[in-house]
Amino acid sequence: MIEDVGTRRFGVALRTRPRNRALLAGVLAGLVLWQLLSLLVGATTSQGQNVVPPLQQVLTTGITGLSHFYKGGWGPETTLQGAEDSVPLAALAVLQNSLATLVRAWAGYLLAVALGLPIGLAVAAVRPLRQAVSGIAGLLRMLPVLAMSPLFALWFGATTTASIAFVTFGAFWVVLLATANAVNSLPAPLTEYPRTLGLTPLQISIRIVLPAILPALRGALMLAAGTAWACVLASELYGIQSGLGWALNQTLLYTLVDQMVVVAGVFAGLSLASLRLVNCVTGRLTGWSE
């Protein structure tokens, strides 16, 4: 891109840009701040080490302590069976619970997209139906969704199924509404032209409408992915006995802040990576529009 030198110097309509340097500096500054805070809190209160553990504690006991989240079944003995806390065992624990969380989040998200897209396309084709569904969704949108995860645990038990169903429930409406709205705002000639070429309604839906709404849908697919990760966390925090959310809840129960920070960090990394992936894939699919 051509850089508008003058615009920059005169400061009219200036636009800032994201800088990787700033991102890196921000993370470093965050770590330094944490360490300073832990020194300060540690010096002024008796329980300081437990409230804001210093980085060296987070990186040692914060990691090895995770060993007891390993539930066995993969070869090595668990801590309940007498194994000592160790880095390999902690790695297994993180891997085991990350997998559980990843499967739930992605299964729920993909299910929501697989249901939301076709239903959205069908709903959009009939205007009264679209308006009726918007009416329902307008109400459901205001429900405290995250706090309704205990319901799914009551219905499906404390199982992975409950978690997936809850994630799907949370993300489905986002995809459905966005699809219906995107179809509604397509310009009429876009579907009239292929009709003059003799395409059937189903062909038009799949080959014309679906690709045409993808750029408008991209934001909603990202929002739905974010919702899915919030939902999987909520469902694991209350009731389910595995996954990173469960581990996080346990660290809260016993106030193990060093382990809490590590688990939260792993969860943050996974959800960030997942959203980047969705962004990348949808970017590929909509490459023609930019």
């Binding site: 003058g6 615009t7 110097r9 005169f10 009219v12």
Partner: peptide, 21 residues
Amino acid sequence: AGLLVPTEGVIRAQGKPVEGP
């Protein structure tokens, strides 16, 4: 207009150099 700063050269409007819009 003063929206762009030239790399080189001078622009005077009514005798005064252009320094921004």
